[in-house]
Write a protein that binds this DNA or RNA. Structure first.
Lengths: 205, 205, 205, 205
DNA sequence: GATGAATGAGTTTTCATTCAT
DNA sequence: TATGAATGAAAACTCATTCAT
């Protein structure tokens, strides 16, 4: 089983949702946030892209920002699902660590829209009030693995926030650089080097 | 000389600019982007916060987005200045590495508005056309140090993008966590642990 | 059949268009250009006069000047239609000449708004970009008749521009004088004297 | 003495006025009305073109429309002066008629700005309240000649308005056609044909 | 459920006019 | 006189939301 087919089963749940109007709207927003950004997103675009009438939106969402928040939850769930699937309770912690990073990166490589959406959502404070406490939801599976590594004295006994920042922050920037064509994550050797560097940051030396 | 006064001399150039109307507008936008975000920023707010009439804005900027771009350039210049001041051409590379990270973190700790502004600007694709190629401008001083470390075989010979991602990405996430109160960067020991972890990620082991 | 009813059938197509919002806006602009002029015409007036909300305008026209240009084309078409109806391919050229002038004058007498609109549109250089080459569109039916008269050696063999200037220019000024109450074109004898003088200007003597 | 020098003495009084600020403003408006039109004329343009500060305008004029009205009076005076200079109390009425038309046409040919300004002023009802009764001021010298011709039974005994319309209206349209390059009034033969046609319209046959 | 024309409050931007210097 | 920065009311235009069909 190649990587693509392995992940496509997991990732594409939004893509395979029944093609009803509500799903069409959610997909339309996901696509538009990536192409025009939150700032320029408007109801006319959403309706046109979804192939529905302007009023139809309000049968499924109370107001514009609701679709954003609902979409965020869907996207986060998919991401967590993808990364958790890479988590094995038994097994070498470095292998698990690497597999989770790999899962996360593959997720974003195959779903540019998801990455773009999460980035904008996360870095837009006060865009939507519900945003304020969700910032680090994405990190939950990674967090779980980390705690285990600490117990086994394989991962440094330093504040979780530091470990999370290194893992999550550097991964995000790597993906951004990939999309900005500063580096190619399609190259497995490059990914391996990245995972190794991350590991050395967090591992007990 | 304590840290605060050391940096305040460098950072606060925007704060110490002559209090003319244009500066008042720039400051007003910097403050509002942090408090309400790009998405909710409007001309009425800008004028009110700056204490000028609505029309005054257009004496200094051709259109709304121009103030954003001008401000971005100012902020980036200040950041680079602050970090470059920490760069010494001779000296232990690990010390330089640490000092630059420290300078960057101190910059953002003392200027929450700057951090918030840069984050939103960087992660808002297509918000402003000029945005598209500037994404990694902030990394230039770090990049310089890195190249030197590579030559001395003290820093890993892996793609620059990986090194930059680890340094820049994890630092940004650390600061976000600090402002989200998940960790306190006011604690020097915590900062030291973070720098050490970063160093181990990039250093030849 | 009196003159009024004869022409009203032809002229009032704008008046008889279905009373939808777009027509209401077109009528509103036609009326307002006559009463306040291009210079003072604004969107608030247009909406109020048309009995629609401000935003409704933009469902039918992309920008303010578009309604002006669309209206101009409608008005010109109606004028040409009215004058062409008076044109007979066979028949005494002087009779045709007189009938066309009569048709044109009757058109404007019954549609003061149309006259006022065309005058302002024509004499406002650079008001609207599309204006620049349309200046003499109105003269087409008259031009056709003239050429025929020249062939028959009943109309002077002098440049068309001279003949057109005399016919069109003097007619326009007559109508302006009528509306300025310097002369009454309701008097058939007066009109007859005017047509005769025009004829003598253009006819081979 | 060629035509140009003959008229330049008369016409260029605005051009030769002392180059003080007020004159600069008047000239600036005359030029701008021709190039951008009343509709797009604004105070910034006027000041820039005149080479004065925005506030200077208000030392000489109470409000924007005042400069328009003052300029109109100046332009009308110059026109009347030019045409009256061609009027001789004794002499063949046809010769006088022709000379006056020639004087009027030469005036406008040498002063496109004047023509453009008068056209727009005349055809913009309600643009400026003072406009309403001045519409036919320009015709006064022509009117004077006409009355004399009527007395001598050389000019038709038909309402003055008809005679004025033919003379004034056709002349105006001729000049417009000249500037639209539909005919060239620089050709003396063309002008002669035009004068002859006009004469036949108004003369007792 | 689905539509899309209509709304009108809100947005950005313009510009005639003022006034401290 | 002369300036030009500053004003703020008003302009053109946008857009999330509603509602009759």
């Amino acid at each position: 089983m190649n990587e693509r087919s392995f992940f496509s089963e997991i990732f594409l749940c939004l893509s395979f949702m029944p093609t009803d109007k509500k799903t069409a709207i959610l997909k339309s927003v996901l696509h538009l946030v990536n192409s025009v950004g939150f700032y320029h997103l408007n109801m006319k675009m959403i309706a046109a892209e979804a192939g529905v009438a302007a009023g139809t939106f309000y049968l499924y969402f109370k107001k514009k920002e609701d679709v954003i928040n609902e979409l965020y939850n869907l996207v986060v769930d998919e991401f967590n699902q993808a990364v958790l699937n890479a988590y094995q309770d038994d097994g070498d912690i470095k292998v698990i660590f690497t597999q989770m990073l790999e899962a996360a990166i593959q997720f974003y490589l195959q779903q540019k829209n998801y990455f773009s959406f999460i980035e904008q959502y996360t870095y837009a404070p006060f865009l939507f009030k519900e945003n304020q406490e969700q910032n680090f939801v994405l990190l939950l599976p990674i967090y779980k693995m980390m705690r285990k590594g600490k117990k086994l004295r394989l991962i440094k006994d330093i504040p979780d926030a530091i470990l999370l920042s290194i893992i999550h922050g550097s991964m995000n920037t790597m993906i951004k650089m990939h999309y900005a064509k500063k580096v190619s994550l399609n190259n497995a050797a490059t990914r391996k080097k990245f995972y190794q560097a991350c590991w050395e940051a967090v591992a007990v030396s």
